[in-house]
Design a protein around this nucleic acid. Structure first.
Lengths: 225, 225
DNA sequence: GACAAGTTGAACGGCTCCGTTCAATAAAAC
DNA sequence: GTTTTATTGAACGGAGCCGTTCAACTTGTC
């Protein structure tokens, strides 16, 4: 099972086999439709025939190209993970105090993670991880772990600049994100609504606590409000 | 849909209707078997016939008593939530420094939350919350929110004792738990193994950070190690 | 004992859906 | 033009499972 490996492992200009080649545009349409159905209605609730119809393609074509329902699902996950990979760049040079920048980063992270599509995607991945652990691993690599590394690098940068004092940036990255999400993560997964006020309260608290632990200048608002 | 309301809403000694009454022991056996199957194999993958066989009961009996597959699932969730309710008591008088006590609490919380059965249960609840939001709400009430209140009360107690300085105990409770779980929560859900060392590292870091923000005595080990 | 209601086993209808087969057709390589 | 391969539409086999029905039996109340 090669989930989320390098995109084009072997495209050596090997002599194309004779006959009519696969229609790449059809393949893309299939994966698109499949991703939509899988992540919107769930794996079991997705009928191959429906995917075929949405992709404007025959069902047999899908089985020709992917062979299996699971394989199609894996392909959809791969595509989504690929999209994820582009979303983790933090500007190393940003304006404002470290407090302001942390706040902005926290808001961006929460906004990104709490999108409804992300919720759906996580749900499906978590459900299928049980049957196919490689799927969960691929998601962790492409998403959370990647983000953690990026953010840890940012923190290290701030440490170099003397703005923070962090013994373990990887741990600190986890801590900050965990604080920002707080219980909102659970509530979201279990259908409770999380108000923007709650989000902001958690982010504010996260920044406050983070600076209390890792700040270099004596924190100015230890007992705010 | 009455999920997790008061256990026995109307048991007024209303004149028992004539004829053979429901067999309570059978009902219990059914719910037991159903819970096992639902939380072990998932809702869709659970066949009523199998539940009936495991409970030593006829399929028709299940339909007589519960009427529906969903209703049976709800009954199983109710029973599990009921069990959850007993698990959130924190000893207000415990020995040791506040640091030691927080560490012990963190370890207990993580140990409780990371049990495999809890993972399974959460997975199923999250999956079914989509179709039935009341299920997710019931779980939040019986589990996370209950725990949060209990822990916040404990923290308030420590504040009264002058051991901590916390402006918002509810937020602080969230923060501590979030820090203890850290990314381990995600990793667990997506099939990655979380080593005891990682857990302990996170708990240690959580206590450290928590005391840095809310401690009353100057933290003794800011840059531990 | 008469009555009412739960329990059982078996069978059935109905539904959804996966994956395959087949013959006909289209598109590329040689 | 020939060969090779992909695509299509339709149909089929097979499986799983929900929920119902029925007749017989059991267990309770009156």
């Amino acid at each position: 099972m090669s989930i989320c490996g390098s995109s084009e492992p072997e495209h050596k200009s090997v002599r194309r086999k004779a006959g009519r080649p696969f229609d790449a545009s059809k393949r893309a349409a299939i994966v698109d439709a499949a991703a939509h159905h899988f992540f919107h209605y769930g794996y079991a609730a997705t009928a191959i025939e429906q995917v075929a119809a949405d992709a404007g393609v025959s069902k047999v074509t899908i089985y020709n190209q992917f062979g299996d329902k699971r394989a199609l699902f894996v392909a959809a996950v791969e595509r989504e993970c690929e999209k994820l990979r582009g979303h983790f760049s933090i500007e190393h040079a940003a304006p404002g105090s470290i407090r302001d920048r942390l706040t902005a980063i926290g808001q961006a992270i929460v906004a990104f993670l709490f999108r409804p599509e992300m919720l759906q995607f996580e749900r499906r991945i978590a459900a299928e991880t049980e049957a196919e652990p490689a799927i969960g691993a691929a998601f962790l690599e492409a998403g959370p772990w990647r983000m953690k590394h990026g953010f840890a690098a940012y923190l290290s940068h701030a440490v170099s600049a003397g703005e923070l004092a962090i013994p373990d940036p990887m741990l600190a990255a986890e801590q900050f994100v965990s604080l920002c999400k707080g219980m909102g993560d659970l509530e979201r997964r279990f259908g409770a609504i999380v108000t923007p006020e709650q989000r902001d309260r958690r982010i504010l608290g996260a920044v406050e606590m983070f600076l209390a632990a890792y700040g270099t200048t004596p924190s100015l608002a230890p007992t705010d409000r």
